[in-house]
Write a protein that binds this DNA or RNA. Sequence first.
DNA 1: AACCACCTGTGATAAAAATCACAATCGGTA
DNA 2: TACCGATTGTGATTTTTATCACAGGTGGTT
Lengths: 189, 189
Amino acid sequence: MDQTLRDQITDISKLSDEELSLLIAHAQNRQLKKGEILLHEGEVCRAFYLVEKGYLRTYYNKKGVQINLSFAFEGNFTANLKSIKNKQGSEFVIEAGEATMVWVFNIDAISVHFNTHPQFTLFVRRLAVRLLLASEEYSNLFKLYTPAERYQHIEKNNPQLLQRISLSQMASYLGVARETLSRIRGKNH
Amino acid sequence: MDQTLRDQITDISKLSDEELSLLIAHAQNRQLKKGEILLHEGEVCRAFYLVEKGYLRTYYNKKGVQINLSFAFEGNFTANLKSIKNKQGSEFVIEAGEATMVWVFNIDAISVHFNTHPQFTLFVRRLAVRLLLASEEYSNLFKLYTPAERYQHIEKNNPQLLQRISLSQMASYLGVARETLSRIRGKNH
DNA sequence: AACCACCTGTGATAAAAATCACAATCGGTA
DNA sequence: TACCGATTGTGATTTTTATCACAGGTGGTT
């Protein structure tokens, strides 16, 4: 039943069966409706999230306009690491893009076991490095490529993203106007 | 003599005196002339670098045009973490922006001690998280701000950068043409 | 001082993208 | 089927930025 959950955790870092069970015992299950917010702006993030069904969208609210920063689909983790690490209010919002089921791993609950289970420390740090490397990869798109090249990069390296989210959401993610992305897409026929 | 070196390391993660000495024993000192390359394109990065004097510039070579990605000044670490982690050739070049003195911490040399000195593992991971969070912070400039806002953000949060590097280097770092940055700067009088 | 390499400012023009406006399409539903 | 809301395509226009060209300026070196 929660075998996939176990697989997704051990994909980050190997844990003993006992440690796995202990970690999972701390995971809380949450059901979110489309548009429901998991982490509010200004709220300190105290957990990382694993998506079981649906997807989570992270965005920045710039004067009422939402700028998409990341998407996490089935089997992927997400969090606001800056907020967690610095214990500061989140600049970003994490919300459900569809009806979504997530596992919530509360950091405080887990950190209680850091001394007795050093593998937990490793797991959390590996997860952080993985999330941050992915974030760096994505953000280099903006430094190194033009809007059209960014779209082609997604087409090539992350095509499932195009199936799951609307053109408008993708335009915000790629940092271009919806109309511009529509024209880019038209050119590539 | 190397008290500042010790301080810069313990700023990342606390180590015992013995561990500090062991770590420092693995650090190699390198002198670089202006323009000398520390990490070549295609080379696998196997170390992290601590700048003692001068500065290191990381850039991406796009069809002969250098696009600046980061600068590390006195007391700061840098590396190509993606290359280290995935053991893949670096897409980026790290070179000295001035006559520069660096401490080179070879990962393989240090990892030998990971089992006997778990604090080394922690140190490396903390360093990685710090570098990646800084990288994320910087890259959000591109998603969230216009060129003029980016420049003002640097003026406010990192003014020493403007003292140390030329307008041309800064323009490449901010992702705008040199002329555009000159005009932005003119407007802010 | 004379020279040179490099950097910066600025005008003119071209290219790219944003914005505005509106028509067309698609799904779900009464 | 007819309606409604959300999404997408597309033309016209404006705004922003890049590109090109060139004129100072600066600092180091001989």
